[in-house]
Design a protein around this nucleic acid. Structure first.
Length: 249
DNA sequence: CATTCCCGCCAAAAT
DNA sequence: ATTTTGGCGGGAATG
């Protein structure tokens, strides 16, 4: 009780093999553990505290994973500290919805390699009675800009969905995170904003990779900018998912 | 050197 | 008020 053990213990005592490894603490590995821990039958409800405790990580990290998993339909928020386990079966439905949403939004149709513009605005399927005349791209707002809405806009979850839309709404199947950031960012890839966005993309890509929904490939070092390459997974499971969507539409 | 991305501070939403 | 949820960026591990 009292103070929860930081569990940091950089080294404690001179034990064998120190070497702090980032890979052991990576979101990808944590996600794998999370998955193997809850991807069993009988699991329906998941407590964040319980997860953090079982996985031996801080709360903060659980939020990251849970948010991206929810964006892909594996989880669903039920209440404070509680999520419902939907499993991988929830993925097809979620992706189909994202695809439809993405198509509805705005972008060029599939007819070759084209450039499309992405939109970062989104609203829930909730009963949001908002007297808004249609959707407006970029809302400069004369005055009193909507501050509270800005938060949701920058959420990991939304970024994840937009990132996924990038794949399923176009024939793009391979892009660098820098490229993705540029597209999803719309404009303003200036300075810090871009860097921060890319950091998040790394996080997302790592967890999606651990789910085999995406694959990380290495490119021959360029020189400046772009480095990582991400593409659609070649795994059978993913194939099923995407095939399902194609058939579904 | 450049790229990858973990850690955790600290502030918005909830309660 | 406390607690939960999570942006955001530094700066260390990694390539």
């Amino acid at each position: 009780m009292a103070t929860s053990p930081p569990a940091a213990a950089p080294d404690a005592s001179g034990s064998r093999h120190h070497a702090y490894s980032r890979k052991q603490k990576s979101l990808g590995l944590l996600c794998s553990n999370f998955l193997s821990l809850y991807n069993r039958d009988g699991v329906e409800c998941i407590g964040l505290d319980d997860a953090a405790n079982k996985l031996g990580v801080e709360r903060r990290r659980i939020y990251d994973i849970v948010n991206v998993l929810e964006s892909v339909g594996v989880l669903a928020r039920k209440a404070k500290n509680q999520y419902n386990w939907k499993g991988f079966n929830g993925i097809p439905k979620a992706l189909a919805a994202l695809k439809e949403e993405g198509l509805r939004d705005n972008f060029g149709s599939s007819g070759g390699s084209g450039k499309m513009k992405f939109q970062v605005f989104d609203y829930d399927e909730d009963t949001n009675s908002n007297p808004d005349t249609g959707s407006q791209p970029e809302a400069p707002n004369s005055n009193a800009s909507s501050k509270p809405d800005n938060r949701r806009e920058k959420s990991l979850g939304l970024l994840t969905q937009n990132f996924v839309k990038l794949f399923i709404c176009s024939n793009v199947d391979l892009i660098s995170l820098d490229e993705a950031a540029k597209i999803l960012l719309g404009d303003g890839h200036n300075s810090t904003v871009m860097r921060t966005k890319v950091r998040r993309l790394y996080d997302i890509a790592n967890v999606l990779s651990s789910m085999q929904l995406i694959e990380k490939l290495f490119a021959k070092a360029k020189q400046t900018c772009s480095t990582i390459i991400i593409g659609l997974a070649t795994m059978p499971l993913s194939f099923c998912i995407f095939s399902f969507i194609v058939v579904s539409l």
